[in-house]
Design a binder for these strands. Structure first.
Lengths: 137, 137
DNA sequence: AGTACAAACTTGCAAAATGCAAGCGCGATT
DNA sequence: AATCGCGCTTGCATTTTGCAAGTTTGTACT
């Protein structure tokens, strides 16, 4: 899908920014699994390849969903952290998870977060938000 | 992204089914704009091309989100309607719309549905659901 | 000091998905 | 009988992806 410079539709606007599957997986890793380093994203089960990961991180930074902080004189300290715009995706991600939970017979319910999503979504969100200090962009 | 036969993650499961941008636009048209005919989907602002539309409709039918009913001896009666699985995407679509509304300065707020989404989401969902009679899976 | 290792990318290339234009078969309309 | 609209399919150029390999810079070990 061609990226549009402007749309009247909020859905298309959103999809243009993070509507490819890889972006959402990166965002999931940032928001839910609290990942921040290149190597951590690479290690996900979904096996994103290095060039795609690199491109996605860049485009998410450009779109203002992630902030990249590079350690002075140490590449190993490079970090990607969510902005408020990304934190506001929690409701979207939770909604998707609810749907997936309902229809995916293979969901691993032993992951603690899954139970909590069903029984106490708001509490889960509050807890996860604490990973990110004050962003208040 | 390669389609996986099974995932443990509900998000990846969902993305494998409708995680490409075109599928979600078709689903938006079905759920929000009550479209049902090929020609109606084609007419969307986003200008999906015929082959892609055809492929997406097929894959959504295969995935069980849409049902195709062909009129006997009249192609013009062919219709695509959502199953319960698709109706359960309302929360996802609404969540995406909320996010898009917040960050897209170009959203057309004169579209009646936009106002209603903000002021009375549940009512909006109830009203839209009435377009679909009894689906009950 | 020298070697090894790791982290974060980049590059090259084949394979798949997309965008665009054109065409096709069929029933309805004129 | 001829034309039109509808729901597609086909062909082909362009773009995006997947995979493997290589590059650069800092860190750790001997």
């Amino acid at each position: 899908m061609k990226k549009r410079s402007s749309t009247v539709c909020p859905i298309v606007y959103a999809l243009d920014i993070w509507g490819d599957p890889w972006s959402l997986i990166v965002l999931r890793d940032v928001l839910i699994h609290n990942k921040r380093h290149y190597r951590e994203f690479l290690a996900s089960r979904e096996r994103i390849s290095t060039n795609i990961l690199s491109a996605r991180l860049q485009s998410l930074v450009e779109a203002g969903l992630l902030v990249k902080t590079e350690g002075d004189s140490n590449r190993a300290q490079t970090m990607y952290r969510p902005t408020q715009q990304a934190l506001d995706l929690f409701p979207v991600i939770f909604a998707i998870m609810h749907w997936g939970l309902k229809y995916n017979p293979n969901t691993d319910m032993t992951i603690p977060i899954m139970q909590e999503l069903v029984t106490n979504e708001k509490g889960l969100e509050q807890r996860l938000l604490q990973n990110f200090g004050d962003v208040t962009s």
